[in-house]
Simulated assay, not measured.
Amino acid sequence: MNTLLRSPLFWLVLLFLGLLFGMPYSGPLFHYLFPALERPVWQQSSFISLAWAHLVLVAISSACAVLVAGGVGILVSRPAGEPFRHLVQTLAAAGQTFPPVAVLAVAVPVMGFGSEPAMLALFLYGLLPVLQGTLAGLNAVPAEVKEVAQGMGMRPSQVLLKVELPLAAPVIIAGIRTSVIINIGTAAIASTVGAKTLGTPVIVGLSGFNTAYVIQGAVLVALAAVIVDQVFGCLQRRLTGYVK
């Protein structure tokens, strides 16, 4: 219990949940801070539903990015896929150079308003960090270790699953960590095309000159990103200790 109380992650989660449940009752505080605003607290939908929709959007898009970029990274790290490595890296980098708003603007006429175009934009933005982390992690595995595994009679698939991926896991997780953190922040923009996220109060606040709405949404998005970053940090430390 003492260890839990000393963990920054525990207090961050507690603060996040406290704000989610307590924000609707923070009227007196925001009335004091913004006396000119008639409605200084977001009431159109609950922060809990917005947070859930935000995290689901990020989780699905990030999972797809991990599966695609991780799988492609493994393929191009094999001898047969090596000639396509530069092409794959270039395409992934190109996908991330497009501004999210531009991707949304192109996707909306085809896919309509809602979470689908947002998921496409987040998917494209999540590819490059995962791909880079996968390639860097697999390249860092010493050749001697792979040769010893092959000398023990392991097949290439066994070397990959039992030797390369476990050793490369901390670096791969670092790439996934970067990808997910980027997507948590970028998902806030998805509200411009009708997706429900914690960015909804931010977008409405900006369009209606309501600074209180902007602060409420932005604080929750920032806290969510910090919490997820801390979770991945703990996972990386555990994996690094396991590999050592």
Rank of each mutant, 00 (worst) to 15 (best):
M1T: 11
M1A: 12
T3D: 04
L4R: 12
L4Q: 10
L4F: 11
S7Q: 01
L14C: 09
L15E: 00
F16D: 06
G18E: 09
F21T: 11
P24S: 05
Y25M: 04
Y25P: 01
Y25I: 05
S26R: 03
G27L: 07
G27Y: 01
P28F: 02
P28H: 08
P28K: 07
P28G: 03
L29V: 15
L33K: 01
A36Y: 01
E38G: 13
R39W: 03
R39A: 13
R39T: 13
Q44T: 11
S46L: 02
F47Q: 02
I48A: 13
S49E: 14
L50Q: 15
A51K: 05
W52M: 10
V56G: 04
V56K: 15
I60P: 06
C64K: 01
A65M: 12
V66H: 05
L67I: 15
L67H: 00
V68P: 02
A69Q: 10
G70N: 08
G70F: 06
I74Q: 03
P79A: 06
A80M: 12
G81W: 08
G81Y: 08
P83C: 12
F84C: 11
T90R: 12
T97C: 10
F98R: 06
P99R: 08
P99W: 09
V103I: 15
L104I: 05
G112Y: 02
F113C: 00
F113N: 05
F113R: 12
G114F: 04
S115M: 12
E116P: 05
F123Q: 11
L128E: 13
P129T: 11
P129C: 08
V130M: 08
L131P: 01
G133H: 05
L138N: 04
A140Y: 03
P142I: 13
A143L: 14
E144C: 02
E144D: 14
E144I: 11
V148F: 10
V148W: 01
V148Y: 04
Q150I: 11
Q150N: 03
G151Y: 07
M152H: 03
M154H: 01
R155S: 15
P156G: 07
Q158D: 10
V163D: 04
A168L: 11
A169S: 14
V171F: 00
I172F: 03
I173V: 15
A174M: 08
I176T: 08
A187M: 09
A190R: 03
T192C: 02
V193D: 04
V193R: 06
A195H: 03
A195P: 10
A195C: 07
A195I: 02
T197G: 06
T197C: 06
L198Q: 07
L198E: 07
T200C: 00
I203A: 14
I203F: 10
V204E: 13
G205F: 05
S207T: 13
F209T: 12
F209S: 13
A212E: 02
A212T: 00
Y213T: 09
A218S: 15
A218T: 15
A222F: 13
L223T: 03
L223C: 01
A224W: 02
A224V: 07
I227V: 13
I227Y: 07
Q230M: 11
G233L: 12
G233Q: 05
C234T: 04
L235D: 04
Q236T: 09
R237W: 05
V243L: 12
V243T: 12
V243I: 15
